[in-house]
Nucleic acid binder design. Structure first.
Lengths: 349, 349
DNA sequence: ATGAAAGCGCTAACAA
DNA sequence: TTGTTAGCGCTTTCAT
């Protein structure tokens, strides 16, 4: 293997092998069968290519073929258990299909979202998965203008296919656990269940609140508007809100539906200031899963979204060439307290 | 904005504006000053480009300029708090520099590592950050052959610059906490501290073990080989190992240094089967940070690696054009039990 | 079974 | 101040 001054191209290999660039191209791009190239030629070219350390220039190939081989996805942020799990599935499945994954984060910022999507488009990505966008309409429009196949993940799409967690069903199961196990409190004021986190502008949150309310109704429990605390996803806000609530109630509410892990973290940040018997008569659930949350001082019911299936289904839709608006639902799993979930990748660490 | 059948190119804009492709190119690639293009022409071209929804074809630009504008990074997996935090910093800082981040996971598989790096090279990435690779030598060789500037992150590089956490110092601080607070046990057999997780083939693990031993020595505590349990990073193995250990000892050891979050999860999976007073006379520390680990039934000392600084420093080295082997160290933070760390992005959720 | 040649969209000399 | 032109490395008809 000689260290050349420039990257080896098919022209170098053509020269070295005494054949033409088109033959080399055919061999090296796996079209040798279609072009009926002699087996000996194929082998010779392949050997030379390997020895020269040749790698296809995907920019050139992409430019010519008008397909880059890049699969794009946007997420709000990497540093989040749910989205990083989506990323892992996206990455793995992309590479299984011979695509190169490109994942970019948008920080839940609409301006950034469009900038990022425009960037990805300019790199000629072949497809785009959109997860957790704030302005899905705008992004959909961008993709449509660029004729870019796109699928919304964990987000309903008005003008394109989408794959979402069955938030309603997951939240229903979680609500049944919380409301069903709530003990009758001596203390009337604390007897009510609460929902904390997210924003109802968000589809997923809205679905979960709906389920929470409907289960409450079925259980004969009234839910007032003040029992639904919408403080977004930032841990800091959640800390403030839960502290204020417990202050008002003189203790924890009988039941608490926490709408995401980040909110859960914020809630914990307040809980840790309480004596350990403060939790004994509260049932706590979280819509999202974290292995460590399974091992806290008190039991936590959790709902784990199936990111692998979300992504797998999205790829299926892509393969089908689906472009019409649609909504596939993926069932999440209810995880009992003190349970370590074993996924396909949990042996990796 | 008309929906054309093909993507708009500079030729379309040239035609529409009555100027030449090179002028359009200059304007649209921000070289209008250097080419002294008339302000009115610039404006006209920009307006037409915007109206036509023009976006630069980065494949074509990259092919011509021999620079893609892609910044690559490989990590073992996305679904991991430390690596996803690296990803976030990498993504943010890349886009601040006008680069498009491409992050691919290798699943700690040497074969996959080379495949992934080859793929990234074929997309003509301008630089590569290598994190958590198993065969760093091989990857370094690949990059060198491709004349690809590369930097090892959280990994020492023999033939290229590297930025690593000061594992020794972090582990020393953590060891002092654990060993310094260990109570004298009535039960002699449980009086010894243990180190669990990782593999000493791994640089970071080796450094941490070294520090653990040296602090023990300074504290007059002997460390036998059986006190260093190397079971890799998979939670499952850790569960088995810690169970076997506690079985042997008849309880928890007086001190436990856990070498990563995934191992910690495995350990917790066993701990949760124990009565809550089992932890009262053990000091537990973990080299890695998770907000929820701060809120377990027992206090946990944690070390948080500063991923933002790791990446920032790596970019600095890149900007400097550093290619010679070197090792920058970044200090990690010791996090006291019951503490929620506030990072630059912790307000996002 | 293989080669010649055009062109994907862009940039950068070189001309004018 | 702007236009002409020659590629970047690859694929793909169309010839042979």
């Amino acid at each position: 293997m000689t260290v050349s001054s420039r990257k080896t191209t098919i022209y170098d290999i053509a020269r070295l092998s005494g054949s033409s660039p088109s033959t080399v191209s055919a061999v090296l791009s796996g079209a040798s069968a279609k072009r009926r190239i002699k087996a000996s030629t194929v082998e010779a070219i392949q050997k030379i290519a390997t020895d020269a350390g040749y790698t296809t220039n995907m920019q050139a190939r992409g430019l010519r073929r008008a397909r880059s081989g890049l699969a794009g996805m946007i997420i709000p942020l990497h540093d989040n258990r749910f989205f990083s799990s989506l990323s892992q599935s996206f990455d793995t499945l992309a590479r299984e299909r011979g695509l190169c994954p490109v994942i970019a984060s948008t920080l839940r910022n609409p301006k950034e979202e469009t900038r990022v999507v425009e960037t990805l488009i300019s790199y000629a990505i072949d497809s785009l998965f959109i997860a957790g966008a704030t302005d899905s309409e705008a992004l959909g429009a961008l993709c449509r203008a660029a004729r870019l196949p796109h699928i919304f993940v964990d987000l309903p799409g008005n003008n394109a296919p989408s794959v979402v967690t069955n938030n309603g069903h997951g939240a229903e199961q979680l609500s049944w656990k919380i409301l069903g196990k709530m003990r009758v409190q001596a203390d009337k004021i604390r007897a009510k269940p609460y929902f904390i986190g997210g924003s109802s502008a968000d589809y997923a949150t809205a679905e979960r609140i709906k389920a929470f309310k409907s289960v409450a109704k079925a259980s004969g429990i009234a839910i007032d508007q003040d029992q639904i605390i919408q403080c977004g996803y930032a841990p800091r806000n959640a800390t403030v809100e839960i502290a204020a609530l417990c202050d008002r109630l003189g203790g924890l509410p009988a039941g608490l539906f926490v709408n995401s892990l980040t909110v859960f973290e914020g809630v914990m940040s307040y809980f840790v200031t309480l004596p350990s018997d403060a939790f004994s008569d509260s049932i706590i659930g979280c819509f999202d899963y974290d292995p460590l949350a399974a091992f806290l001082q008190f039991p936590v019911y959790m709902v784990r979204q199936n990111s692998n299936q979300l992504i797998a289904r999205a790829y299926e839709l892509l393969d089908l060439g689906a472009a019409a608006p649609s909504m596939s639902q993926i069932e999440p799993d209810l995880i009992e307290p003190r349970t370590l979930h074993k996924g396909p990748l949990s042996d990796l660490g």
